Computed example of a mutant assay.
Amino acid sequence: MIVGVLKETAEHERRVALTPEVSAQLVKQGIEVWTESGAGLESNFPDHEYEESGASIVSDRNKILTGSDILVTIQTPDEEEFKKLKKGAILICLLWALQHPELVKQLRDLEVSALGMDFIPRISRAQNMDVLSSMSSIAGYKAALIAANELDKYLPMMMTAAGTIPPSKSLVLGAGVAGLQAIATLKRLGSVVEAFDIRPEVKEQVESLGAKFVEVELGEEETQTEGGYAKELDQKKQDLQRQAIHEHCKKSDIVVTTALIPGRPAPILIKEEMVKDMSPGSVIVDIASENGGNCELTEHGKTVEKYGVKIVGPNNLPSQLSLHASKLYSKNMYALLNLLLEDGKPNFNFEDEILLKTTVTHQGEIISPMLKNG
């Protein structure tokens, strides 16, 4: 059994799918690990560390593509590359299958068994495989640091000989994993933090971090999906939500937005007129930038200034902490491989909820209920 690890080639991608630590664990189990030369360099894992782990360093990328039984990556290889995979090979990566139906059809037609790390169900048994939570935590942390760096004020209260400076005020929109980490980081930096989420059940988590929960009466309607994500609201409730957000944006120095809906563009939470009403020098960091953004004025990959407000649309936040992001992703990958492999061989047991939901294609069929029912 050969597990291949590619050097990531996507723009702004500095992570690696397997670290030397996890490579060593796989080698101990009798699995061969082929790592492309330089795959870990941008995450500060040089080739010699992989060699010391028992992995083989392979300079020929095509050899890894054509020879691997299991190919593990962060981003999906391009079409010409995954066409080189042998029939029956297994590809495990962030597939984003809901956004890329053509890719799913191609993988099905090529009879590649593709598992989407972004499809890991959010259940307790799968917590050690949950890449989205691992990466969201990093994104929330980094977003808070970016906001602090861009703001032209102190975050904590400062008592000086020249007078007392009050603490900055921050608003975090969305209290999922990324939002909670942003709240915690902003609080540690000394800011006064408020948070909004349409899911009332997260109030306790927000308050446990020392932030104030902004409540909006949205009725009895279910606001959370089975997987724990926020549901999209109807127009009337969206208007109520935006009205509340507008009032709190006006008095915030920092706004961090984290709202995402799986398989859909990010919901617009901050309209242009809200930005107009914010104080000059305020900062918006839009974590949802890659999915269209939660702010109407966000430009992905850029920091723009509108009405005196800095709006940051960051690229691939987890990759900006590439060493720890790679470590977490790699451990999530190892946990999934341990579930998939039985006596060193793949066992696609679709009675297991994790394998059923995570497997996008297998033996020329589309498997995951998320795609079949979508």
Results as ranks from 00 to 15, higher is better:
T9H: 09
D78I: 13
Q363W: 02
S23R: 03
V304L: 09
L107E: 01
G30P: 02
T303Q: 11
G263R: 06
A335G: 08
P346S: 13
V360P: 02
I311K: 08
P166T: 09
E221N: 13
V214H: 01
A195H: 03
F119E: 01
Y334L: 15
Q235H: 11
L94N: 07
G67N: 13
L339T: 13
S282D: 05
L189Y: 11
E217G: 05
E232C: 02
V360F: 06
V256K: 01
L115A: 06
S326T: 12
Y50L: 08
D118V: 03
R15I: 03
D239L: 12
Q205I: 05
Y154T: 13
A182D: 01
E150R: 14
D343V: 03
A148R: 00
G176Q: 03
G67K: 09
K231R: 15
V193D: 09
T9G: 04
S282H: 07
G163T: 07
V255Y: 00
P314L: 08
A211T: 12
P20Y: 04
Q241D: 07
L173R: 01
P20D: 08
A55L: 10
L85K: 04
V283T: 10
A17K: 01
G4Q: 04
K84F: 06
T359G: 10
V206N: 01
K276W: 07
L209Q: 06
E32N: 14
I123F: 05
G67L: 08
N316G: 07
G374R: 12
Q75Y: 10
K28R: 15
A139H: 07
E290W: 03
G344Q: 12
V256P: 00
Y334C: 02
E204G: 08
L269T: 00
I31C: 09
L151N: 08
A55I: 04
L186W: 06
A178F: 09
R199P: 02
N338F: 05
L340G: 04
A139K: 02
G292L: 03
E299Q: 15
A126L: 05
F196Q: 01
D118L: 08
V33T: 12
V214L: 15
E79C: 08
D109R: 14
L339A: 11
E80V: 09
E49D: 14
V177D: 00
V312D: 02
I90S: 05
I123W: 01
I57Q: 04
L371W: 10
T361W: 00
K86R: 15
S133Q: 04
D239T: 12
D253N: 14
K250V: 11
Q127K: 15
K203I: 04
S368Q: 09
G344C: 13
I90D: 02
N349M: 10
G292M: 08
D239Y: 04
